[in-house]
């Protein structure tokens, strides 16, 4: 509600600024978070990998 009451008063250029900065800073944050998550997932996978002498399907 607060946002809606402020919205019409903002100059039109502000929406372009919000769109440009929002996508870039948001995109950077999302990419950084995704990188950290993917690194953690790969490390977990590498730590629990099946051994070379393990039969297909894993050990009982």
């Amino acid at each position: 509600m607060i946002l809606l009451s402020i919205m019409p008063r903002l100059p039109p250029d502000v929406w372009f600024i919000v769109a440009a900065w929002g996508v870039i800073l948001g995109g950077l944050a999302l990419y950084a978070a995704a990188l950290l998550r993917r690194i953690a997932a790969r490390r977990a996978l590498a730590g629990t990998r099946p051994m070379d002498d393990e039969p297909p399907g894993g050990r009982e």
């Binding site: 950077l28 990188l35 993917r38 690194i39 790969r42 490390r43 996978l45 590498a46």
Partner: peptide, 17 residues
């Protein structure tokens, strides 16, 4: 620079896997 370091780490982990 930080993103490069992290992405490189990911690329090396992918290569190892």
């Amino acid at each position: 620079a930080w993103l490069m370091v992290r992405r490189y780490q990911l690329a090396r982990l992918d290569a190892d896997l």
